[in-house]
Amino acid sequence: MTLLGPAEIRELAAELGVRPTKQLGQNFVHDPNTVRRIVRAAELSADDVALEVGPGLGSLTLGLLEVADKVCAVEIDPVLAKALPATVQRFAPEQAGRLHVIEGDALRVDVDQKPTALVANLPYNVAVPVVLHLLATLPSLRKGLVMVQKEVADRLVAGPGSRVYGVPSVKLAWYATAKQAGKVPPSVFWPVPNVDSGLVAFTRRETPLEETGDAEAGRKATFAVVDAAFAQRRKTLRAALAGWAGGPDAAERILRAAGVDPGARGEQLTVHDFTRIASQRQAQPSHG
């Protein structure tokens, strides 16, 4: 199979009249070795259905079709979405039947292909919402390998106590275990971004369940605590959760019942700590 190099990328873009836009976070990979590296790191098997968000001109799509059973590509740019099947037909005609293209926003479209792996070069500005939304709405997704801005990669995989540990770290940890899978230099993209990119690999695990209610209710309740704790990350949890709990005294009661120090800060807590706090609030008698 022919993978797209710089000449093919420029040629395709010229044919389509495509100019990468900052608004859509478009930076197209034009280095076949980087594509091979991403596909290798994704550890796909022949029965995987790969979900690619933002396939662009098709560099990674061609690499994924070499190893996955099917590729479902979600593309928001109508010109690129319409052109992708023709590109695959041109460069890998024998694989064209295994590509399914959905034109639309990954945060809103229905993906009916039951994908098992998310493998994507994600637009920097929507990377975190897209990963969390897809994990929330597609239970068939078991693993993933995403390329994001290095700073975002660091945040996604950070653990408690890290300076960059925050909302994305905890929310991804609700769904999956995640790790860094390498750094990608700006030179492999067109246009060249002014930041390094990072690869994040994740594997879905059982979500931490709250003691009462269903898993979705537990997730929403836990995420509300996470959002409140990090909205004022310099404050102690007693103060940061006061609005959420109905006052600092109520926050302290809930925290102590959950076995969490009210003087701690959000960045010290694991996703399980946040889950226990959410459960305790539901278990506390109301004071009013």
Score class of each variant (00 low, 15 high):
85 P>N: 03
87 T>W: 00
88 V>E: 05
89 Q>E: 15
91 F>S: 13
94 E>W: 01
95 Q>S: 14
96 A>P: 03
98 R>V: 12
104 G>V: 13
106 A>V: 07
106 A>S: 14
107 L>T: 02
108 R>V: 04
109 V>L: 12
111 V>L: 04
111 V>D: 00
112 D>P: 09
114 K>V: 04
115 P>N: 04
117 A>V: 09
122 L>Y: 09
123 P>N: 03
125 N>M: 02
127 A>N: 04
127 A>V: 03
128 V>A: 15
130 V>F: 02
131 V>C: 00
132 L>D: 07
133 H>T: 02
134 L>N: 01
136 A>N: 00
137 T>D: 07
138 L>G: 05
138 L>K: 11
139 P>L: 12
143 K>H: 08
144 G>I: 09
147 M>R: 03
150 K>A: 14
151 E>P: 00
153 A>F: 01
153 A>H: 01
155 R>E: 01
156 L>S: 06
157 V>S: 00
157 V>M: 01
158 A>D: 11
158 A>W: 10
162 S>L: 06
164 V>K: 12
166 G>F: 12
169 S>N: 11
169 S>K: 05
169 S>A: 14
170 V>A: 14
173 A>Y: 00
174 W>S: 06
175 Y>I: 04
175 Y>K: 04
176 A>D: 03
180 Q>D: 13
181 A>D: 11
182 G>Y: 07
